[in-house]
């Protein structure tokens, strides 16, 4: 018989993505066996994060300050803006170290199926940023899906009258990819986007 507090903890942990009841029990047991070294620091970290982490009103990133550390970093390229769907995409691009401009997180993509409209995403704020700041290039780093590309084309239309150049990430052969293992669609996209060598 498991105590009510432990059951409650298991139930909470099982709600995390990728975790079910069995893996949640294992996680909770591991935490309980490592109370001082893991459980208490984790609890304190979670508590602090819940108190301090806020959404940046400029780019919709998550940070402990508003505006976030990226938006307030004056050493970054102030003319370049990278538009992403989600904060995880921002982290992925930032991790490469190859982009030194600012970001704008949309919060998803347009979807007629799920009823997501431009107003549900931060597209109006993106247009305002493109109009009112020193931005000269907007890079659309959206997923290569029907919804992602529909959103990209919509954003390109919205930014048509802003004085910015609009580009998007290339689609094609991934690094380490083998040609005969790629699907038709990726190969077609790669052929269209070929460049001189």
């Amino acid at each position: 018989m498991i105590g009510a507090d432990i059951e409650n903890l298991i139930r909470l942990v099982s709600r995390l993505p990728g975790l079910g009841a069995r893996s949640a029990r294992r996680c909770v047991l591991h935490l309980l066996k490592n109370r001082e070294t893991l459980m208490l620091p984790l609890a304190q970290g979670l508590d602090r994060a819940a108190e301090t982490i806020v959404e940046c009103h400029t780019c919709h990133n998550l940070d402990t300050t508003n505006p976030c550390t990226i938006c307030t970093d004056t050493r970054r390229d102030q003319t370049s803006l990278c538009v992403v769907e989600d904060i995880s995409d921002l982290w992925a691009v930032e991790k490469t170290g190859s982009f030194r401009g600012y970001y704008h997180v949309l919060g998803g993509t347009l979807s007629a199926l799920d009823g997501i409209t431009p107003e549900d995403l931060s597209i109006p704020q993106l247009v305002t940023r493109a109009n009112n700041t020193e931005i000269t290039e907007v890079i659309l780093a959206l997923n290569a899906t029907i919804d992602g590309q529909t959103t990209a084309h919509y954003i390109a239309e919205c930014l048509e009258n802003c004085n910015v150049s609009i580009s998007q990430l290339a689609h094609g052969v991934p690094i380490g990819g083998q040609i005969d293992y790629l699907d038709d669609g990726t190969l077609q996209a790669a052929l269209r986007a070929r460049k001189a060598i």
Binding site: A112, A144, T145, I146, Q149, T150, H153, A156, E157, H171, D183, D184, G185, T186, Q188, A189, R192
Partner: peptide, 20 residues
């Protein structure tokens, strides 16, 4: 997957909308 048509239309907003 037998054939991917999504890739053909993704770069063209009119074709993309027509497919949807």
């Amino acid at each position: 997957l037998e054939k991917s048509h999504a890739a053909v239309v993704m770069d063209d907003p009119l074709k993309l909308t027509a497919l949807q």
